[in-house]
Deep mutational scan, measured.
Amino acid sequence: TFELKGKVGKVVKIAEDHYLVEVEGDKWIAYSDEKLSLGDRVMVVDVDGLKLKAKRIP
């Protein structure tokens, strides 16, 4: 999973306390310091076990 750092994905679902992000065809649980919206493009900035930390990108 460490190779996911720096990869770009898309928010495909918003849950109460996390997001579901699709990166290279796989879906991952993600969290972010900022509020994300459905369809936002994100970059993986860190990997915490099986969770990704994501940041919105333009």
Rank of each mutant, 00 (worst) to 15 (best):
Thr1Asp: 15
Thr1Lys: 15
Phe2Asn: 15
Glu3Pro: 15
Glu3His: 05
Leu4Gln: 09
Leu4Phe: 03
Leu4Met: 13
Lys5Met: 15
Lys5Asn: 14
Lys7Ile: 02
Lys7Pro: 02
Val8Thr: 14
Val8Pro: 04
Val8Asn: 07
Val8Phe: 11
Val8Met: 11
Val8Ser: 10
Val8Gln: 10
Val8Trp: 05
Val8Lys: 08
Gly9Ala: 08
Val11His: 00
Val12Asn: 04
Val12Cys: 08
Lys13Gln: 10
Lys13Arg: 12
Ile14Val: 13
Ile14Thr: 11
Ile14Ala: 12
Ile14Tyr: 08
Ile14Glu: 11
Asp17Asn: 11
His18Lys: 09
His18Cys: 10
His18Val: 11
Leu20Ala: 05
Val21Trp: 00
Glu22Asn: 08
Val23Asn: 02
Glu24Tyr: 05
Gly25Trp: 06
Asp26Leu: 14
Trp28Ala: 02
Trp28Ser: 01
Trp28Glu: 01
Ile29Arg: 11
Ile29Asp: 10
Ala30Glu: 00
Ala30Val: 04
Ala30Thr: 12
Ala30Phe: 02
Ser32His: 02
Ser32Ala: 14
Glu34Ser: 07
Glu34Trp: 04
Glu34Met: 06
Leu36His: 02
Leu36Glu: 00
Ser37Gly: 11
Ser37Trp: 14
Leu38Cys: 09
Leu38Ile: 10
Gly39Pro: 01
Gly39His: 13
Asp40Pro: 00
Arg41Gln: 13
Arg41Glu: 14
Val42Phe: 11
Val42Arg: 00
Val42Gly: 00
Val42Ala: 04
Met43Glu: 15
Met43Asp: 05
Met43Thr: 07
Met43Asn: 03
Met43Ala: 05
Met43Phe: 05
Val44Phe: 15
Val44Gln: 01
Val45Thr: 09
Val45Pro: 01
Val45Glu: 09
Asp46Gln: 04
Val47His: 08
Val47Ile: 07
Asp48Pro: 01
Gly49Trp: 04
Gly49Ile: 04
Leu50Tyr: 14
Leu50Gln: 09
Lys51Ala: 10
Lys51His: 06
Lys51Asn: 07
Leu52Lys: 01
Leu52Trp: 02
Lys53Gly: 03
Lys53Pro: 01
Lys53Ile: 03
Lys53Thr: 07
Lys53Ser: 04
Lys53Arg: 08
Ala54Asn: 01
Ala54Phe: 09
Lys55Ser: 06
Lys55Ile: 06
Arg56Cys: 04
Ile57Glu: 08
Pro58Ser: 11
Pro58Leu: 11
